[in-house]
Design a protein around this nucleic acid. Structure first.
Lengths: 110, 110
DNA sequence: GTAACGTATTACCGTACGGTAATATATCAA
DNA sequence: TTGATATATTACCGTACGGTAATACGTTAC
């Protein structure tokens, strides 16, 4: 998929498996790959690992090594911090659209 | 890309061309395909049309027919309305993460 | 009617993705 | 050291995407 820096976050969040990984990390706290893989009967561990690599690349999750385990934890602030400004922008657009409607109504009244 | 209903919105927003289309519709108000295509020198009109079909399918834009023209307008409220609950959820997760940290600190103090 | 125009649709191409399987790497246990 | 475990990496497959080109469709102008 064609994408850019902003789009990379959306692209990561577009996949339901990755969102489910984020949900699990959010609800249960830090987990390793095996624990996560156990929640996805239809998937194999290396697939989960691959998704985690992508999530790490965008900074949405971070990993702490504990012996031979990688303990993954969500950086929920990163998720919200990255998306919130974008959402604010479109809220502003909503307001702008309302203003245009109001202007149009005024012009109609002329 | 594997996706679901929620993911469809993220997937749509992942593409920079589609986000730029949304921005144009938000900043300038409703536009037709030709007007939009004029803003994308590297793209051909049918490509824009294709993106608009996707945007329509998710409800992010709507079209009003005016003779042989299709006038597209953004439904910014749909954008924010769909994303906001999702964002709220992860803000709650952020709080949950903080609580876990606090609990862990208390346990350490035992 | 018919010709030009605005847009949508289809077929097609190259590329990237999600997933599995196999292999490699690193760490713990005996 | 040897074997088992936990994860990462690589190669590969099928599918979906972004884009162009060509075509079809509906609408206005003549």
């Amino acid at each position: 998929m064609r994408t850019d820096a902003t789009g990379a976050l959306f692209k990561i969040l577009a996949d339901p498996t990755r969102r489910q990984i984020l949900d699990l990390l959010a609800e249960r706290g830090p987990l390793n790959v095996s624990q996560l893989a156990a929640e996805f009967p239809g998937l194999v561990a290396s697939g989960i690992s691959k998704h985690l690599m992508g999530l790490r690349a965008t900074g949405l999750v971070q990993a702490d090594r504990d012996g031979r385990q990688q303990i993954y934890r969500i950086d929920a602030a990163k998720v919200t911090g990255t998306l919130a400004p974008w959402l604010t922008k479109y809220e502003r657009y909503s307001s702008a659209a309302l203003e245009r409607l109001r202007d149009a109504a005024e012009n109609d009244a002329d």
